[in-house]
């Protein structure tokens, strides 16, 4: 069951997602053990594969470290749903085949601990706890192509 970890705030930055003191490695599994450490020390203890992170505006702002995406993927987070994303983080997600879900008002539509399921094809989040279907705006086609190819490098290999 995918549980939502909701952070009711804007500007969750890359220093919080993966502090610079851990950037001396690029190993996803190792990075995952520090995922969101400076925001919520409980996160890595409670996160289960497939869980989703929900936050406000400007998620992933700050540095260009792709380690932030790798830490989240390494923690086997199923999705990040935010009101909006910082530009480089957004691009890094797509490059890694990880779908960033933009959803204005997300922190009000999904509560901490809610059970959710994301249907990427339909562009809908099923909030099972609240028994609601929440549509989100799909990514533009070129970004979907990159994601469907499994990331940018697989994509350019094809081109």
């Amino acid at each position: 069951m995918s549980k939502a970890h909701v952070y009711k705030r804007d500007h969750v930055n890359t220093d919080e997602i993966i502090p610079a003191r851990y950037l001396n490695t690029d190993d996803g599994a190792e990075l995952a053990t520090h995922c969101l450490e400076d925001l919520d020390t409980e996160f890595v203890k409670t996160v289960q594969p497939g869980d989703v992170i929900v936050a406000g505006d400007d998620f992933g702002c700050g540095s260009s470290r792709e380690h932030a995406v790798w830490a989240i993927q390494g923690a086997r987070v199923g999705a990040v749903i935010a009101h909006s994303f910082a530009r480089i983080f957004y691009r890094n997600c797509i490059d890694n085949g990880f779908y960033p879900i933009e959803l204005p008002g997300a922190v009000d539509k999904i509560h901490d601990g809610d059970e959710v399921e994301v249907d990427y094809k339909q562009g809908v989040i099923h909030n099972k706890t609240q028994n609601k279907n929440i549509p989100f705006k799909p990514l533009p086609d070129f970004a979907l192509e990159i994601i469907n190819d499994g990331g940018l490098l697989e994509h350019i290999k094809k081109c």
């Binding site: 260009s64 890094n92 490059d95 940018l152 490098l153």
Partner: peptide
Amino acid sequence: IGSTDLAA
């Protein structure tokens, strides 16, 4: 840019 874009 991030590392994947950099690689590309």
